[in-house]
Computed example of a mutant assay.
Amino acid sequence: MDEEPGLSDQYPTASPWPLFVALGLALSEVGVFVGLFPVAVFGLILFGGSVAGILTESGYVERPWPTLVGVGVTLAAIAAAIAVLQLPAAELVVSNIGEGPLFTRLVAVVIAGGVMAAMGGVGSIMEQSTV
């Protein structure tokens, strides 16, 4: 028996990121499709952060912050584009949040994307200030 359990000599321990990617994806799907606003926002943030973490750990990117900004901006842009293309202009008002199911869900995705982009930006600034 090995004294240090793990997958191989190259990877002495298993990565926790796949669990968080799956959990974030599941929570975001439940939140968006069922219409649970906080669950959708949390799930999307968990999913985006986990994707940034797994890409950083595997060596595809050096730092997670630009990836987090990219995922956040992409989510927000896609949700905003769907809102503009699918909803009448009269419904695209902040006072309609909670009234229409599609608009409320798209707002949740835009907010999650904005939070991710902000987190990535602040993380990048904080990292640069400590170096």
Rank of each mutant, 00 (worst) to 15 (best):
Y11F: 13
D9R: 13
P101L: 06
F42A: 15
F42H: 05
P66F: 01
V21H: 01
A83S: 10
A83I: 04
S58F: 13
A14N: 12
Y60M: 11
A79S: 06
V94C: 05
L23W: 03
S50M: 00
G98M: 07
A83N: 05
F20Q: 03
L87C: 12
G35N: 08
P12S: 01
F42D: 02
G43S: 04
V51W: 12
A108F: 09
P66A: 08
M119C: 13
F20R: 00
P101M: 07
L25R: 05
T67M: 14
V93C: 02
E29I: 14
A77V: 05
R105W: 13
V71R: 00
L55Q: 12
G98V: 03
V84W: 10
L23P: 04
L106M: 14
N96H: 11
Q10T: 10
A77Y: 01
L36R: 07
L19H: 11
A81M: 08
S124V: 02
G123Y: 14
G121M: 11
V69C: 11
L19A: 11
T13G: 00
V115Y: 02
I54K: 01
F37K: 00
A40Y: 01
A83G: 05
P38C: 09
L106G: 08
I45K: 01
G59S: 09
I54F: 06
S15N: 08
A89M: 06
G123R: 07
L27R: 06
L27E: 04
A26L: 11
A90N: 11
S50P: 00
P16E: 04
A77C: 04
L75S: 06
G100R: 07
V61T: 11
L36Y: 07
V39N: 02
E127R: 12
Y60F: 15
V34C: 02
I45G: 00
G53M: 08
F37D: 01
M116L: 15
V32Y: 13
L44A: 05
P66G: 13
I97Y: 02
F33N: 14
V107H: 05
D9L: 14
L36H: 11
V21N: 08
V84G: 03
G24T: 00
L36A: 04
V93Y: 11
W17A: 04
Y60R: 14
G53N: 12
L46Q: 10
L68C: 06
A118Q: 01
L27A: 10
G98H: 05
V41Y: 12
Q86N: 14
G49F: 05
W65Q: 14
A81S: 15
P16I: 13
L87F: 07
W17G: 00
S15T: 09
G70D: 07
V30I: 13
L25I: 05
A89H: 10
G120Q: 03
L36I: 15
G35W: 08
Y11N: 09
S124I: 08
L75W: 02
G100W: 01
P38G: 11
F20A: 08
V107P: 00
V39Q: 10
S15H: 07
A26V: 14
S58K: 09
P18Q: 08
A81G: 15
G100T: 10
